[in-house]
């Protein structure tokens, strides 16, 4: 009977791998929302693995930031795009798909060789020993972050601020100066419902010129 920690590790590892594989499978992954849900499951399993490594702060951050904020952002964007089945078609088989899978396997094989060589003869250390106290608590990580890595921490906050501003600037609708002289009620119709070239009231074109030829 293996020890319970090892059983828990194997359960969490299997869950992570299965969820990650489900994310990639073409049958389930054709709709990106299925991939997003599978990835959320993988992130929760990874949070359990972080907890096994006694990384308390990172476990909380994994659930709050990754499974919470980032994946909610993904699902919101998927819902905002409102993809039709025609938008989700993907080539079923192509030579670069095989090549990509082989390359992924190759990289894993190389990494596995190195890991096995490096950790093969290693004696397992006693993690319950007081000499090996866990260091992942909020106090330990916070002390490290606010003393040694203070500059990097402040730079990370600046990076997040810039990213937030950049995301707003990139994603906001630019309806006013693309083709309409003044905000017209006709523009509120989604242009996919209007045939291309239809002249709407106020002289607004149904389509911005850049989207010609991109219709399916």
């Amino acid at each position: 009977m293996p020890p319970p920690e090892l059983i828990l590790f194997y359960v969490l590892a299997t869950g992570t791998l299965v969820a990650a594989a489900v994310m990639l499978l073409p049958s389930t992954g054709r709709n990106p929302i299925h991939s997003a849900i599978a990835l959320i499951a993988a992130f929760f399993c990874l949070a359990g693995l972080y907890a096994q490594l006694s990384a308390h702060l990172l476990t909380a951050l994994q659930i709050i930031v990754y499974a919470g904020a980032i994946m909610v952002l993904f699902t919101f964007v998927i819902m905002l795009l409102n993809l039709t089945p025609a938008d989700m078609r993907e080539p079923r088989f192509a030579w670069w798909k095989v090549a990509g899978g082989v390359l992924g396997l190759f990289v894993f094989g190389k990494l596995a060789t190195v890991i096995t060589l490096a950790t093969g003869g290693e004696q397992p250390i006693n993690l319950a020993d007081p000499m090996n106290t866990p260091l992942g608590s909020v106090r330990d990580v916070g002390r490290m972050m606010y003393t040694t890595n203070l500059v990097a921490f402040e730079l990370a906050s600046v990076l997040l601020l810039v990213a937030a501003v950049g995301a707003v600037v990139l994603a906001k609708k630019k309806l006013d100066y693309v083709d309409a002289p003044e905000p017209s009620p006709a523009r509120t119709h989604l242009h996919r419902n209007v045939p291309a070239g239809t002249v709407l009231p106020h002289g607004a074109d149904a389509d911005p010129p850049a989207s010609h030829g991109a219709h399916h």
């Binding site: 992954g29 990106p32 993904f74 964007v77 993907e90 390359l103 992924g104």
Partner: peptide, 18 residues
């Protein structure tokens, strides 16, 4: 393994969200 799966996903999928 997870890194390999992610790499294979980047190389095989064409949906930018995935």
């Amino acid at each position: 393994m997870l890194f390999g799966i992610g790499l294979a996903g980047v190389l095989t999928r064409r949906n930018v969200l995935v």
